[in-house]
Design a protein around this nucleic acid. Sequence first.
DNA 1: CGGACTTGTCTAGTTAAATAGACAAATGGA
DNA 2: TCCATTTGTCTATTTAACTAGACAAGTCCG
Lengths: 259, 259
Amino acid sequence: MQHDKLVTGERVSGEKSSGAVERRSGVALWRQIADAIRQSIADGEFEGMMPGEIALAARFGVNRHTVRAAIAALVEEGLLESVQGRGTLIRRQTRFTFPITRRTRFSEGLAGQSRDRDIRLVAEERIAADPAIAAALTLEPGAELLKLTLVSRADGVPVSTSINYFDAARFSGMAAAVRETGSITRAYAMLGVTDYIRLTTDLTARLADERERLMLDLKPGAVVMEARAVNALPDGAPIQYAVTCFAADRVTLKLDMPV
Amino acid sequence: MQHDKLVTGERVSGEKSSGAVERRSGVALWRQIADAIRQSIADGEFEGMMPGEIALAARFGVNRHTVRAAIAALVEEGLLESVQGRGTLIRRQTRFTFPITRRTRFSEGLAGQSRDRDIRLVAEERIAADPAIAAALTLEPGAELLKLTLVSRADGVPVSTSINYFDAARFSGMAAAVRETGSITRAYAMLGVTDYIRLTTDLTARLADERERLMLDLKPGAVVMEARAVNALPDGAPIQYAVTCFAADRVTLKLDMPV
DNA sequence: CGGACTTGTCTAGTTAAATAGACAAATGGA
DNA sequence: TCCATTTGTCTATTTAACTAGACAAGTCCG
């Protein structure tokens, strides 16, 4: 195995501190640079205009054409816009803030940040409960569950995709209610649940898989935050198990801890 | 720009549903496969032993040698172990669960999950306060801040790296106290702060940058969760602004919402 | 042992990524 | 208008990534 030896010896030596790209890492230089630029913009490093291609190439220690490939990817992504003779403009991306509290609701959470919010039902299944999910919902293992796959958007931009499990016996009308109201909260209301709270949220992050890339319109290499949550009635009886994947570069989760 | 056209037309056609790798995405196939295998293992898909290289190659629709490159990377990472004639064994990676509540403390959070926990001070600076941080700490902009860079480990594995800001006037002995006690909580106690709470936490996720890769011993392409938190005295007076980056594949953040 | 299965190694060839240099074309300011 | 600066396009070359096939070398089981 020849090139594996190269992979092993990848932490070669201290190169430049700023624009750090690693060769032979399995990630193309142009993509590393594109990711770095996207992050820099998110951090507000550049104002309106990008540095020239030659300057960027020097900064990252690569050829100008490699920087051009990175920029082309970001242009295709809608984040940048190149104008011959002038330079490369930044078309600022908005980032939504999504509060997670005991009373987390999608559309309320984005109120004031977006004009249009909607939830679309993309799949509906009935399955036998997985032991872990059954336990979370205090059902016996093997109980029939309603599994709804949703995609949430704000201003037309996909923000999250979720897989939601409900007790099929109790919430058989959930799919229709979600489809009709475009909201989990309103769907609950139709079924007689006027209030609910969030019991727990487990958070992790990873690269988006194929399904999520499709649902959220993400490029390979994009990052998602996965939240596994249990919602319950005000008395604490669990009614919903949800696995929600947020597009990490479009949203910040805000955890408020009231004093 | 020739290859950009190819990048554009990347969503080619429906291949296999399971092992989905994308070509021409800027991420090498072997790395995509390595990431997918790592995730599968984290999800508990395989038991003790990996499927054979030929089976994996078929599943991902690539050559056996490409799968071998992915496995070699995971072996080098310590996650897998190949034995000629037998197969490839899984050396299960532990994943820590880290609770985030109003009373979040690093070492308490990992109690019962790890034998050794420690926090190392890697840098100490005095800087003028950034407006945003000053506001969060209710200090006037330009006030002198103490900036401490820490790395947290559990069982010798780096779990998180954080940059912490304190009012320099009030907490000038913080660096020494952290170095001596190996704990933020105990360092606070030395300075007379016997209790503190967490006010807010903002969460996002992204690819690890060079600094974080170094601190946490991560490969390029690894994902981090960034938590920006404000800690305060029990009466709500903020005393600490912290930006903590967790290695996403080593930790799950657990948000408990007590009923 | 013998055979079926596994990972390890080798050679060879193809495709994609990155480098290098030259020049065209558009912009904006002196 | 002229000039410096910017992005756009082209050709050529090198290096890394991937594919293909063959065979060696271990392991396990009947």
